[in-house]
Design a protein around this nucleic acid. Structure first.
Length: 504
RNA sequence: CGCGGGGUAGAGCAGCCUGGUAGCUCAUUAGGCUCAUAACCUAAAGGUCGGCAGUUCAAAUCUGCCCCCCGCAACCA
């Protein structure tokens, strides 16, 4: 019985500013959060995002700027929050891994696992590159040198803590096979299963010596060790919404059996979420999330987009140029959730002109004009009436839209693209209905009854559409409502004025 | 023989699991209409479904082989 919905994004690593990928996951999560709030009620939905702030990369980035790690992350975090504000992200909570609530939870988790003998101390041996301060495996070395800086590496040993994930391999395989909705889309489920069947898990090293890495959460029972960033980071999903009691039981109103727990992630961090995370939870005796959904990447032309290549699309720039709703719409509409996509301004403009300007914007605008012209700006009295076959078909479409959206946004695969398509089917029917009804003739011929029914059908469609697009495009939904929500319409400028492509 | 994803109209994709006249969006062309943002509606053109072979009455769809493209160290959605 799930009556509540808890959705998360990954916590973003703050060693650089946010790019299109961060915004993609977050916009998708926001859309689902908004959708479910409408369905279940505002207080039945919890939407968490946040930042991952520990680790070597942060430490080094801070040093480069002559700041302490905390000062550095304090400086970066607002840039994320500002972006989310600009993208209309309605998160309920924003967790930072440097917050007290999180640090306490991580330490408790370590204590509990330690007490249960799930973690143990051992020598860690590996090839270490001193300038890069990084361990490499034998496999990663390039001609016996550091793959990053090409300098020679040294074999060193240090004492660390390990988490017994190898003991859970069989359990995990069984779990995945009996819970096909756990890892989505299905292709990722298979990828993980295949990986687990072909490889033997080795216990996960979850600590770093304090002297080598100062910036992390210290082990309470071994202060000379700090927590490895991934172990630290994953815990955020539970540290944000609950806590452990004296007996080590996790207590949370957002992680019970009545809650549907969904993690949205990018395909790059599938391993951590599909392997480490369930095992951590299992070892703690905490229930599994319902779904981990790994979406694809946005490519830029031929290249993969990444921080290190510097070929990132700035979400802020796109929003300033085209508007939030347009950006949100494009990301969710252009590519099926789960697959990789190609980002280009040309593609965005194409979408904009054909879907938003020509189909939706124009439908609203032409309807408003007709209400102005034929009814002096007042929506005629009366109800939606299926006076002819087309109106009837539209009525059926309106009635079924909720189910269509539910099947695309509610279960298993989050197919935003199809959900939007189903809304656009209705928009297109309405545009065609205008053509076929020829209201200008109805007006001339004095067929007032027909004209009124016709207008009411359009108004019905527009109101339905504005409600349906609200999770995707909150602002557009509001402005449609402002223009045509009342009996007296308020026609403004076109919602989405066409962008003429006069390329530089 | 490493793993995975992919190769379908000019572009981007669906269809493939559960074989049976090859579909969608955009772009193009022609027509219609005027309420509308050169928009909307209708129609047309455009594909030997990467190649070869096999199974079959029938293959984009199943099987085998081959070719080409993209990922598979780390950071990163």
């Amino acid at each position: 019985m799930t009556s509540k919905f808890y959705i998360t994004t990954p916590i973003y690593y703050v060693n650089a500013s946010a790019h299109i990928g961060h915004s993609y996951t977050t916009i998708a999560a926001d859309t689902l959060a908004r959708y479910n709030r409408n369905l279940l009620g505002k207080d039945k939905v919890r939407f968490l995002t946040g930042t991952d702030e520990h680790g070597q990369k942060i430490q080094r980035a801070a040093e480069k700027e002559g700041l302490s790690p905390q000062q550095f992350t304090d400086k970066i975090v607002p840039t994320f929050k500002n972006l989310w504000a600009k993208l209309d992200i309605s998160y309920d909570d924003f967790i930072r891994t440097t917050e007290e609530r999180h640090i306490r939870a991580v330490q408790r988790v370590l204590e509990i696992l330690h007490a249960k003998n799930e973690i143990y101390a051992a020598q860690y041996e590996g090839w270490y590159c001193i300038p890069c301060e990084t361990f490499w495996t034998e496999m990663q070395l390039v001609e016996n040198a550091c793959p990053d800086c090409k300098r020679p590496v040294e074999k060193i040993q240090e004492s660390n803590y390990f988490f017994k994930i190898s003991a859970y391999q069989d359990w995990l395989i069984d779990y995945l096979k009996s819970h096909l909705d756990f890892i989505r889309p299905a292709s990722r489920h298979e990828e993980v299963c295949r990986f687990l069947e072909l490889n033997k898990l080795t216990d996960l090293c979850i600590s770093r010596p304090q002297e080598r890495l100062g910036w992390g959460i210290p082990f309470s029972f071994s202060p000379e060790h700090v927590t490895y960033v991934w172990f630290d980071a994953l815990i955020n999903y539970i540290s944000a919404v609950g806590s452990f009691d004296d007996k080590g039981r996790y207590v949370s109103e957002w992680w019970g059996d009545d809650v549907k727990v969904v993690h949205l992630i990018g395909k790059d961090i599938l391993r951590q979420h599909a392997v480490y995370w369930p095992i951590i939870l299992k070892a703690l005796g905490i229930r599994m999330p319902d779904t981990v959904f790994a979406h694809g990447w946005w490519m830029l032309g031929e290249d993969k987009m990444s921080k290190s290549r510097g070929n990132v699309v700035s979400p802020l720039e796109m929003v300033d140029k085209f508007g939030v709703d347009v950006y949100r719409y494009f990301l969710l509409r252009d590519v099926p959730f789960g697959l990789d996509g190609n980002f280009s301004e040309d593609a965005l403009i194409k979408r904009f002109n054909s879907d938003l300007a020509n189909d939706l914007g124009n439908l609203v605008y032409r309807t408003l004009t007709m209400i102005e012209k034929y009814y002096q700006g007042n929506v005629p009295q009366g109800e939606f009436k299926a006076a002819d076959a087309q109106a009837e078909a539209i009525g059926v479409k309106i009635a079924h839209l909720g189910h269509r959206l539910a099947s695309n946004l509610g279960a298993g695969d989050y197919n935003f693209s199809l959900a939007l398509e189903s809304i656009w089917e209705l928009i297109n029917m309405a545009n065609k209905y205008v053509e076929d009804s020829k209201p200008w003739n109805l007006s001339k011929e004095g067929k007032t009854e027909e004209l009124r029914n016709f207008i009411l059908v359009l108004v019905g469609v527009i109101r339905k559409v504005s409600a349906a697009i609200a999770p995707f495009m909150p602002q557009a939904a509001v402005s449609i409502k402002e223009q045509i929500g009342q009996n007296e319409i308020k026609k403004g400028n076109p919602l989405f004025p066409r962008i003429e492509i006069k390329k530089v």
